[in-house]
Amino acid sequence: MTEPILDITGLNKSFGPVHVLHDVDFAVRAGEVTALVGDNGAGKSTLVKCVAGIYGTDSGRVRFRGEEVHIRGPKDAADLGIEVVYQDLALADNLDIVQNMFLGRERGSAWLLDEANMEQAARETLASLSVRTVKSVRTPVSALSGGQRQTVAIAKSVLWDSKVVLLDEPTAALGVAQTRQVLDLVRRLAEQGLGVVLISHNMADVFEVADRIAVLYLGRMAAEVHTKDVTHGQVVELITAGRSGDIGLARPENAVL
């Protein structure tokens, strides 16, 4: 088994009196897609935001490539090579694909941007991901479809030589064909050796692309299993009840009080 590229142990996070994450252990392996599933309010987004440095954590250890790191802000996460693609994508409609992909990290000097270099790099990145729907990298984002926007947002996250990419419900708002494109893209990210975390509510998507499934139940990590070891029904049980047969959280009667 490969060493996890990102390994979180015993993570706790409270918002005031509300204890959102309880001793969560979570690992992301390079070259694999780990699906993070759970019901609404289970703590998926909170966990992602803790990893991305948007929220501080109360306790817990984060190891990145085997070394303990402290993520104190979004910039720390970005420096490590952890990129998050949020649900609302964060693209500027009035800028084109190249401008969006390099936003905030433009190449060239501050007084003369190197447009040609950025355009080539954007094209190469999109090409390496076999993105086939974008006709020109100079298309403004406002003229792109939802799936194309999602593609651009994901491509933007891999442009920075990133190691771990966290995708927050990338297919939630997409049609069938566009979901297909995005799932293919997710698979290709993993094939390129990145650690990919996919948050999704769609079991079909999860079973299609994920190598592992991590189930959060009311702020606890109920199970972290190989996709091939479980069935659709078991995962749904884990999500709704926190356990399914032998896997999952201990039954209350067996719990150590």
Partner: peptide, 14 residues
């Protein structure tokens, strides 16, 4: 242009 197009995106881009 970025701030005018999407302020939140600009903020997240640093």
């Amino acid at each position: 242009y970025a701030v005018g197009g999407n302020r939140e995106a600009a903020r997240r881009a640093g």
